[in-house]
Design a binder for these strands. Structure first.
Lengths: 113, 113
DNA sequence: TTGACATATTCCTATGTAGGAATATATAGT
DNA sequence: ACTATATATTCCTACATAGGAATATGTCAA
């Protein structure tokens, strides 16, 4: 089998760098598709397709305004990612502490293997 | 072109659910490959390949111990993901506040379009 | 060195998908 | 109704890759 579908969840959706760029732009507020096209330098269909993926996994919301369609980030969709990564927070804090400890103590003990 | 390579960065690496499972298991401490195989119910080559991806992007560290090879999570590798998602934290906090406000005030104003 | 155990790697194939080109849909203005 | 504008969708193709099977590599013990 191939990789899981991007439409399946937010993790896959943000694995694509362009989609992260889009989310970063939409974090400042609403933007039309054409606006994003200008900012990103991508083809309009590409942007629309990326927005489609982001919308399907709930990372952005869209509303029509005249001829334009305005997109905005739905930060709630990013929360699960944040929560998952946060479970490792205590680990890297612990890791940093160990590094600091080693730097302060004398190098008596040699790492085995 | 196709999707970006999983070996390219941590975002792609954790997009795969199995790899997230592996990281969650390795968060508790070192584990051998065979141990992970038992816990995950996957084929040994699959686990080895996932570990290879995680190792290449710096999400896990490995050391040989006799015949076994022990893997552990390298939480530092997850920090960039956490940092990226955290930039949206103020947004969902703001969003939650707005939801709360709306729930408390009388529904006088109608959302346009 | 031979054999058993533990892990990695190679080869193969099916599949999801990003991007490009062309086209379809929708809206506003005249 | 017609036209221009804005966005979405469809079709196509190249390609990365997940998993399976088979094999290779590495390590210990006798």
């Amino acid at each position: 089998m191939a990789r899981a579908a991007t439409t399946s969840d937010a993790f896959n959706a943000v694995a694509e760098p362009r989609r992260r760029e889009i989310l970063e732009l939409l974090a400042f507020g609403e933007r039309s598709v054409g606006d994003l096209v200008l900012k990103l330098g991508l083809e309009q269909p590409s942007v629309s397709k990326h927005l489609g993926v982001l919308r399907r996994v709930g990372l952005v919301r869209a509303r029509r305004h005249g001829r334009r369609i305005l997109y905005k980030a739905n930060p709630e969709g990013i929360r699960p990612l944040h929560a998952w990564t946060k479970t490792f927070e205590r680990l890297w804090e612990h890791q940093l502490l160990r590094v600091k400890e080693r730097a302060e103590e004398k190098p008596r003990q040699v790492e085995r293997e």
